[in-house]
Nucleic acid binder design. Sequence first.
RNA 1: GGCGGCGUAGCUCAGUGGUAGAGCAGGGGAAUCAUAAUCCCUUGGUCGGGGGUUCAAAUCCCUCCGCCGCUACCA
Length: 519
Amino acid sequence: MTKTYYVTTPIYYVNDRPHLGHAYTTVACDVLARFKRLDGYRVHFLTGTDEHGQKVEKAAAAAGIDPQAFTDMVSQNFRDMCRAMDISNDDFIRTTEPRHIRACQAIWQALERNGDIYLGKYAGWYAVRDEAFYGEDELTIGPDGKRRAPSGAEVEWVEEPSYFFRLSAWQDRLLMFYDANPDFVAPASRRNEVVSFVRQGLTDLSISRTTFSWGIKVPNAPGHVMYVWLDALTNYITAIGYPDTENEAFRTFWPADLHMVGKDILRFHAVYWPAFLMAAGLPPPRRVFAHGWWTVEGQKMSKSLGNVVSPYDIVAKYGLDPVRYFLLREVPFGQDGDFSQRAMVNRLNGDLANDFGNLAQRVLSFIQRNAGAQVPEPGPFQAADERLLGEARGLLPVLRRELDEQAFHKALDAIWQVVGAANRYVDEQAPWTLRKTDPERMNTVLYVLAEVLRHLGILCQPFMPGTMGRLLDQLAVPAQERHFAALETNMLKPGTKLPPPVGIFPRYVEEGAAKGGGG
RNA sequence: GGCGGCGUAGCUCAGUGGUAGAGCAGGGGAAUCAUAAUCCCUUGGUCGGGGGUUCAAAUCCCUCCGCCGCUACCA
């Protein structure tokens, strides 16, 4: 039976332009999806856009177009971002699609059948911007006389009939679920927050609105549209065919292996969503990981500061794969991090250009000039050769373990241990000396190094698919031998012609800095 | 206010009872295959302060200071 893996990003709210944070979440999921595919899993990788709600309705009105045309336009921005970041998603869902409307209405009816929905009345302060209600006591009154939520969003008094979800009834079952599934929420500190939140007691959740219309209609309840979070969360099952739970995709991929989310939307995913699912008779996802935020040069990213980082800008400046690498290497995944020019350039020039890029270049160009531009014929391996090959071959199980915990930084660190070992091996073996004293030994050393590069190239593909593709081209590794199973079974064949090497990670030279070179 | 976390080398962090660690940055050297990259050596810390337990504490306990997250409440 084929192993399967279902991973999702949040669906991104279309009232926002793609920024570094969106790229981060999406790249992280992309690495996992690519890794699992190369490891022989059948993968479903979902991303998409969240397109309903009062905020979108108002933004569209402000733009003078209808909401559907507005979301068509803005949703495309996120598709474009995926393309720009080399994202390998299998599907891109939009909450305005018919399949999703059908799924939402179905889950609503399932909740209703289970007795978890009742009609009540909601009165309270509502912030359109946050899509959330606030208590009177949470508000502050500004000098302009307007009430604002703690987030700074303006609130308005809303009094309307509303359907409620009996969330309070699910408290115990949620706690039992967390208890039985200690890895459901990660990192562990977030899990504690979730558990203590639920332990404090849950109140029923208002899940319909009557004050605007840009949403999914509640079945048999004219005037009511669904609460955006019930709508949005359901996307994860829409995409695999809900409400047809007997279909192949659904049976294969549900429950999802991982919902990747930002820490701001953890509660929706770790509390409301499992409750909705259990109430609808479906198992909750296996895991929700809440990652951290990026600051920029030490400051919070914000529109008012005007320092919101566009993925396009940094990719244009540093290159796509260096950016992908940086995002996952610089910060222990789960923590907040800082995106700075200095840190980015350090990683690019230090880890990528000097350590890895130069390793590839020194080995490949040596082979090109001194080994007939082909994979050398190795002699017997010595202890040092076996040691280095052993380190490279030992990476896969480590990466599997780290990536199953979303510890991207540790996975990359492990890979770079081998890069360092390979650079040391080059110096110790000194093939430039062997060339004169022992050409056969030189060939063995070069073979070992090429083979280590093959491992590194294959294993780094999830992180830097484009660049590693070029490295593997330079090693003449056939396209169909780039999956993980080929690591063991398809060693480089001596005599294979190798193309002239081209640097894979050029150093980043500061704009306006002296290019060097002297005369 | 409650719960939780953090405070270790200039920077980012690892290290949960047994002689203080890594990467980067800084200093010195080697080598010359390579993207002036690499390799070796090295400077640097009273592990936030204080007290306690222990033969032994960054690691356990108490307390104080500072920072952060979740959450509650008062006004």
